[in-house]
């Protein structure tokens, strides 16, 4: 088995530009793959195909080599899922729900569920009806992770969690990754994706417009941007004369931003060595900025 998740040529046209169009992507075993996009871009549609709730009309989806539609039930032995909208069945408490889920999967040992609930500071004996949004989300997280599934499909798995719980969640995903599990997660929060994902795909109007490698962003870019301020205007002018790739000039502060490839870092320091530098700071490219740029690029292309 080469890929944990494999989507080839998946197209699902709902009309009016909604749906999914020619989506191709693969997720390697042990990889954490993120999915972002505006509401209605097709994230949930993609996850529904992977879950076998929707039948692909064109293209196909495979998980662990099995067809997501035809082998939907068998594949569920290996899949943990958090649905985008949490609606619990008519049972009283969180524990009743977890036990019900365990009985469907023939899971006997709820020790892991206990452990997860403790980590999320979740009282599973609370009635589902009186649970806050955050507690419901935690219950859904516990249900998805308790069986030790090898592929996790998480549709906005951490919505409604506060920063501390968010951290528990990202810690859990990282731990699953360390165990070799594959995680496919959609999210609205770039911080979260940056924290746990290996790669993140940006979905716009049903198409993947960009797949970013997190290791190559957030300050780790091959071509980095630095902002440098000089103590005096002469030094600033002398630096400008060196013809580096300038991205921004703020003459009133004697401040310049430059893009420098790894290989040219030496040249930058040699140029700066004889100048009076007040400070140098890096302007990391965040995932948000990266996608915003791609998003607006494609907007421009549309209007052109």
């Amino acid at each position: 088995m080469e890929h944990a998740i494999e989507i080839t040529g998946l197209t699902r046209d709902y009309g009016q530009g909604r749906g999914l169009f020619d989506v191709d992507l693969t997720v390697a075993p042990g990889e954490v793959f993120g999915l972002v996009g505006i509401n209605g871009a097709g994230k949930t549609t993609m996850i529904r195909h992977l879950m076998g709730f929707l039948r692909s009309r064109r293209g196909r989806c495979r998980i662990l080599g099995g067809d997501c539609w035809r082998q939907a039930a068998e594949l569920k032995r290996h899949i943990g899922h958090i649905p985008g909208e949490i609606a619990f069945p008519d049972v009283k408490t969180g524990l009743d729900f977890l036990e019900l889920q365990a009985s469907y999967t023939a899971l006997r040992d709820l020790a892991r569920a206990d452990d997860l609930a403790a980590r999320f500071d979740l009282d599973v004996s609370a009635p589902l009806k009186r649970m806050s949004k955050g507690m419901k989300q935690k219950t859904a997280i516990v249900a998805a992770f308790m069986s030790g599934a090898s592929v996790l499909l998480l549709d906005e798995g951490s919505t409604g969690l506060d920063p501390l719980m968010q951290k528990v969640f990202t810690g859990l995903v990282a731990e699953e990754k360390a165990k070799g599990r594959t995680v496919f997660m959609s999210s609205h929060m770039f911080d979260e994706l940056e924290a746990v994902c290996d790669r993140v795909a940006f979905l716009k109007e049903g198409r993947i417009i960009e797949v970013a490698r997190i290791a190559e962003l957030g300050g780790n870019e091959a071509v980095k941007e630095y902002k440098i301020e000089f103590a005096a205007a002469e030094d600033y002018q002398a630096f400008l004369a060196r013809r580096f790739d300038l991205t921004r000039r703020q003459d009133q502060f004697n401040q310049a931003s430059v893009r420098i490839a790894r290989a040219d870092i030496g040249a930058l320091f040699q140029a700066l060595a004889c100048l009076d530098v007040k400070f140098i700071t890096q302007v990391p490219r965040t995932l948000a900025a990266h996608f915003a740029a791609k998003y607006h690029d494609t907007e421009g292309a549309h209007h052109a």
Partner: peptide, 19 residues
């Protein structure tokens, strides 16, 4: 920072990031 820059200018630097 000047001292740092001068020291780095004389060395072969492969990568430079700010934490």
């Amino acid at each position: 920072v000047k001292a740092l820059i001068q020291s780095l200018a004389a060395l072969r630097v492969a990568d430079f990031q700010e934490c």
